[in-house]
């Protein structure tokens, strides 16, 4: 896997220049484990692919990418093994897709990769150890690509105006609670947004013609991985989020994170049993709303992947 360094930087230069010339945006895509076919966020990927087609965003999967380790592996993984996993993806992206930013759709993948990038860039010791470990897999890091979340690509590289242009069917009269949650918001967050009241998701909802209702649980934690290990604690938090969305008139929840989506959707029936509530609120990804507003079908938007079916949107798509 040894490569000529000059060749790599030349390639990177050309690819960047091409990207600018053609106007088409190209990214090294890091879909993450949950987005794969048959996995818990497979419908997220379906909708992201449809969305990118409309917006002419080219995403190329990083060949043989691996799991980021997520936050929860901290105890078993320790420090270096966790960073080495992310570093392997950096090395693969840089080798096969030089000059392209890495784009993740999952909040945890994005956070894990960004954390690793930050640590490696701040610690020569950690970087040296990482290089030594990567050598075992025939890889090395020359430059660490930028790590972006798909939402950043949308609002920073394209901008709300450009996202609005392809809207054929605005989601008029529909009320959504934009549930930002934690890991696209903290600790890095989206540039220019506040931690306490980020507005990018509300703006995305409005860009596609929907109404973003104000509610007080926008950045409350869904429990994250503790939904598995401490279900009672996590479900108490999820209950507060859904309840607040209902109380403020929302018909659906919208999120940028696969774990937020799953946690707030699939445990509603259990919460109903435990608390005597009657929750039945669909939980969508921002990308699903965009595909529908761009005139896509229910299938292209991955609506068949919602456990709590979004009937209103299914009808909307068929019209």
């Amino acid at each position: 896997m040894a490569r000529n360094e000059n060749e790599v930087s030349a390639e990177a230069h050309v690819s960047e220049a091409n990207g600018q010339r053609s106007g088409r945006r190209q990214y090294a895509f890091y879909p993450g484990c949950s987005s794969q076919k048959g996995a818990s966020a497979s419908n997220y990927l379906t909708s992201v692919e449809s969305m990118c087609k409309v917006l002419d965003i080219k995403i190329t999967e990083i060949p043989d990418w691996n799991c980021c380790g997520a936050s929860i592996s901290y105890a078993e993984a320790g420090e270096l093994p966790r960073h080495v996993m992310n570093a392997r993806n950096f090395a693969l992206a840089e080798q096969h897709l030089p000059g392209q930013d890495i784009v993740a759709t999952c909040a945890a993948c994005w956070l894990g990769a960004r954390e690793t990038k930050e640590r490696l860039e701040h610690s020569s010791v950690l970087l040296a150890d990482t290089q030594e470990a990567l050598k075992e897999a025939g890889l090395q890091i020359r430059a660490i690509p930028e790590i972006r979340h798909m939402v950043e690509v949308l609002i920073e590289d394209l901008g709300y105006e450009e996202l609005k242009k392809p809207v054929k069917k605005p989601l008029q009269g529909m009320k959504f609670a934009g549930y930002v949650g934690c890991q696209t918001n903290r600790p890095f967050g989206i540039h220019g947004e506040s931690f306490e009241n980020p507005v990018y998701l509300d703006k995305l909802i409005e860009t596609v013609g929907g109404e973003a209702v104000p509610y007080d649980q926008k950045v409350t934690c869904c429990g994250g991985a503790l939904a598995f290990s401490e279900p009672d604690k996590a479900q108490a938090q999820i209950k507060d989020i859904i309840e607040s969305a209902y109380d403020n008139g929302a018909e659906m929840l919208v999120t940028p994170c696969p774990l937020c989506q799953a946690n707030t959707e699939i445990y509603q029936s259990q919460i109903n049993k435990k608390y005597g509530t009657k929750f039945n609120m669909p939980v969508l990804y921002y990308s699903q709303l965009m595909v529908l507003a761009y005139g896509g079908t229910a299938k292209e938007a991955g609506l068949d992947g919602n456990v709590i079916r979004a009937r209103k949107l299914e009808e909307f798509a068929s019209k």
Partner: peptide
């Protein structure tokens, strides 16, 4: 192999 090396170095 990469992870075994990482554990050793850590």
């Amino acid at each position: 192999k990469m992870l075994a090396k990482a554990r050793e170095l850590e």
